[in-house]
Design a protein around this nucleic acid. Structure first.
Lengths: 336, 336
DNA sequence: ATGAAAGCGCTAACAG
DNA sequence: CTGTTAGCGCTTTCAT
């Protein structure tokens, strides 16, 4: 019930006064600045006073002075996040935290202005995007003085694709699994959501590469809406074509589930009539009928790698896209 | 190929020099400060120069001076995020953006220190948590000078539960649907993940309330691991008990899917042998066998409401927990 | 209508 | 070993 006391912030000046020392000395202790010989007694006096008063350094002032902030932003595309992403963020948070940075995420719906105001409000030390940044977005970051960006902004879509090697791994692993099982005519099912277009293209490209490497004919690609009837239609059209595919890589598990539902409508059974492989290993995959074979990435490792990459960039070094190994593991269940 | 030119930031001083005016005047124009009569000509001169030079206000300095930042943090519990959460965040981002704030999210794994360093790095204007904050966490915010917090920190778990009326709505809607369908003995299936404990308790409490309101016996509550065999066991034990339940509310769709898989193992059919209702309406729910009845919240509205609540708190007003109506919609499919 | 100047909290030369 | 001091970029009285 205490009034609206504005609760004045505890500053280093308060600590200085409480200890009878100067702000400088306090600052040296609190940041244990190198090349300063502070006697142990003084040091403890400061530390105790700081703890007792509940002193917290004030970030804006610190940032203003030092020119660097401790915030790292992970820009997530505005698509439905699965468990993989959650894990990844979790592990990246951990890694950054240990390096003294605070990680926050921002879901980006595509409006460049929104990102611009984010930079203005946060002045992050580094930014990581799950998708390549557009030229306009890159320009906004440059203006805001953000130099540590991964993936590094490029000027050409080709480079972007090249940089997304770690996305292509998923599609590649799916196709390779199917090929290893003896399938020679594959299809790829894209999601019906424009927000996923970039990522889907990357994954599909990976599957196409695997087919090319194996000397197989090109993938049959189609878009499958998140709906059993629509999926059934796609399946029917594939089966009607000459040289029809016998196995399909789905963009993700949800698309795969739709495909499975479509097959049920057509009285088809996986994998006999058509093998289906998903991606991401969502929880629902194991409860599908039949249980869905899928591929999963080691999100913990990827999260840690992202953190490493960004920390490296922060240190002024450069990162090789291939640095993101994106090891993909096949989770074998009954649908292939 | 330009060297590592540190790319000096464009400051308001630069704009002042370019226009031959003082920083004060520039500041007046840029913030269109009230009660200042600036001639249109000067105004435009400033605006043009600012645009031409690519001036961006520097947040740390602004915050240091004004004492307030434009950052709002949404603290997400470290659990797997579904589409509901994604939408919610998306809409909240939009609403805050229009009010001039930048929303970022932080996944919180439970370590209070991590949150503390987040406050230190960000100095957010407001914080919204999906779950109540612990006393320790609340203390950390107080120290960091963050006063706008929703839900407002309380000292008792009872109050926390009371405040989470908007969480309980989900469980209530599930139970009410089942009761309306004639079921009189209900069960509740909890998830096997400690991170979800708080939220699950809230949802279960809502279902329990609905039973009590209808004068029905208490819910049979059990924990169902994300695994068909484990779910089967839970189901078997429920059916073995006298007065066994005929319908079950699952914490979320994933638990419901596990239950459905368990029923298949036992050769039971939903809804004949046991009705199952999920929550969240994940995409996989519609592809389940049988398609899963579930409840969904209007995440767009909830996101907007969260934003409104926080903006209200920022304006110094208080919010009533009941302000979050959390309207829940039953998505009727075949499992009930 | 515009400018001069102070100061937010912090760090880092530079003195002493 | 510790204190003095300047100044980061910005807003905002108070003068002019």
């Amino acid at each position: 019930m205490s009034g609206k006391k504005p609760a004045r912030r505890v500053t280093s000046t308060d600590v200085a006064q409480a200890t009878g020392l100067s702000r400088a000395t306090v600052s040296f202790v609190l940041n244990d600045t190198p090349n300063q010989s502070i006697p142990q007694a003084t040091r403890e006096r400061v530390l105790q006073a700081a703890a007792r008063l509940g002193y917290t350094p004030y970030a804006p002032a610190r940032t203003l002075r030092s020119g660097r902030s401790d915030v790292v932003v992970l820009v997530l595309p505005g698509w439905p996040q699965g468990p993989t992403m959650t894990d990844l963020v979790d592990h990246a948070t951990e890694a950054f935290s240990q390096a003294g940075y605070a990680l926050v995420t921002h879901v980006h719906s595509g409006d460049p202005d929104r990102l611009a105001s984010l930079w203005a409000a946060l002045t992050p030390a580094a930014v990581f995007g799950m998708e390549p940044f557009s030229a306009e977005e890159a320009e906004g970051m440059r203006r805001a003085g953000i130099t540590a960006v991964v993936p590094p902004p490029t000027s050409s879509p080709e480079e972007d694709l090249a940089a997304s090697v770690w996305v292509r791994g998923t599609g590649r692993a799916q196709a390779e699994h199917l090929i290893a099982r003896g399938h020679t005519r594959l299809a790829y099912a894209l999601p019906d959501d424009s927000r996923l277009a970039v990522l889907a293209a990357g994954r599909a490209a990976g599957a196409a590469e695997a087919c090319a490497d194996a000397g197989l004919p090109a993938l049959a690609v189609a878009t499958a809406a998140a709906d059993a009837a629509a999926a059934a239609q796609v399946l029917a059209s594939w089966r009607a074509a000459p040289g029809s595919p016998t196995a399909v890589c789905a963009y993700n598990d949800e698309v795969a589930l739709a495909l499975l539902a479509g097959m049920r409508e057509l009285d088809l059974a996986a994998p006999a009539d058509m093998a289906v492989i998903g991606a991401d290993d969502i929880l629902a995959a194991r409860f599908a009928v039949p249980p869905l074979t899928t591929v999963a990435i080691d999100s913990a490792e990827l999260g840690a790698r992202i953190a490493q990459a960004l920390l490296r960039v922060l240190a002024g070094e450069s990162v090789d896209p291939a640095f993101f190994p994106h090891d993909v593991r096949v989770v074998l269940r009954a649908s292939t």
